[in-house]
């Protein structure tokens, strides 16, 4: 029966897009939501406040490079940062499954504390619920965040202009494959560590450098590919991506090859793209490369291809040919063929 929710509706692909466009977004039409960005920016007493929320259902709870707690805090810090905001306050809702070892919960809360402290934000409110065994996969976390958008900073898909250059802050595919490596049945031994990281410092450094940022987007569920496709569609502009310019470390490439996966669509948790006008490329790259989360910064493409109408992403392949990057439908499954 096609009338039930499938795993694919959460996969960051076309099914998820249809769920949002067809059922959820129409119920709440308003300007802030319609901007369709990682977070919303609203006016409060003369200040532009960024507000965002995200839920974390990762399994396993602990993985190379982090855990669900660190992921949850970083994810919301990053969503605020993608609005150009400086994060200030967080909330956390824990949905705990009966039977989760208290020691595990302790480790996760401690990594949430560390991640918030490192970013100089305070967790000011929250909620805790416990569900019956078998109803919760160990632990789910929802986090929400508030931040302030400094004056002069306006970041969003509507500011994209033809000619803008796309900068990526590092190699892709590490989070998704770090999780996949633990997956029972597909397990492989690898040195791959999740890239989960707080990007708010990177964005703050870019603001401090006076760079005119047109748009920022983190490349989480659905990877770099889905992020660029969504941005192109929202902004009604065409994007050109040079596949050879996108860094992928060898262990991630190897894992993707054996599972038949394309790194462009693999989830990241510490990667984002910045779109700036051409004259801002040098200062933006300098600001990013001077920051721990931007050391691998590189130019991977441009916005606006006059030969093409609105929306869509063209990829220049490694051998110089072109193809249209298409959003996968449900979710990507490892395959033999």
């Amino acid at each position: 029966p096609k009338d039930t929710v499938l795993l694919g509706h959460g996969g960051g692909g076309r099914l998820m897009q249809q769920l949002l466009e067809g059922l959820i977004l129409p119920a709440f039409r308003n300007p802030a939501l319609d901007r369709r960005h990682d977070g919303a920016v609203v006016e409060f007493g003369g200040e532009r406040v960024a507000f965002t929320t995200d839920s974390y259902v990762v399994h396993p709870l602990f993985f190379p490079g982090g855990d669900i707690g660190r992921l949850a805090v970083h994810g919301t810090l990053n969503d605020l940062a993608m609005c150009g905001a400086k994060p200030r306050y967080l909330s956390a809702g824990l949905i705990i499954e009966e039977g989760l070892p208290m020691a595990d919960l302790g480790r996760i809360v401690e990594s949430m504390r560390q991640a918030a402290a490192a970013a100089g934000v305070s967790l000011v409110t929250g909620d805790t619920k416990v569900v019956d065994r078998g109803k919760g996969d160990g632990l789910f976390i929802n986090t929400a965040g508030l931040g302030v958008v400094p004056p002069g900073v306006d970041v969003g898909p509507d500011r994209l202009r033809a000619g803008d250059v796309i900068i990526l802050n590092g190699d892709i595919g590490r989070h998704g494959m770090a999780i996949m490596a633990q997956r029972e049945g597909l397990a492989f031994e690898s040195t791959i560590v999740s890239d989960t990281a707080d990007l708010s410092g990177l964005v703050a450094a870019t603001v401090a450098a006076g760079v005119d940022m047109h748009c920022l987007r983190d490349c989480t569920r659905g990877g770099l590919g889905a992020s660029l496709i969504e941005l192109a569609e929202t902004a009604g502009l065409h994007i050109r991506l040079r596949e050879a310019a996108v860094p992928v470390v060898e262990p991630v490439r190897g894992a993707c090859e054996i599972l038949g996966l394309d790194p462009l669509y693999v989830a990241n948790e510490g990667r984002c793209v910045l779109m700036v006008p051409p004259h801002e490329v040098a200062p933006a790259l300098a600001a990013w490369r001077a920051h721990p989360e931007g050391r691998g910064a590189c130019v991977i493409g441009e916005v606006g291809d006059p030969r093409r109408g609105g929306g869509g992403v063209t990829v220049e392949s490694q051998i110089g040919t072109e193809r249209l990057l298409d959003l996968f439908s449900g979710e990507q499954l490892p395959r033999i063929c």
Partner: peptide, 17 residues
């Protein structure tokens, strides 16, 4: 479950290692 990794099909996906 976080299945969000990208991918297409190839008939006999065999890789040198």
């Amino acid at each position: 479950m976080d299945w969000t990794v990208g991918g297409d099909g190839v008939m006999c996906l065999a890789v040198p290692g």
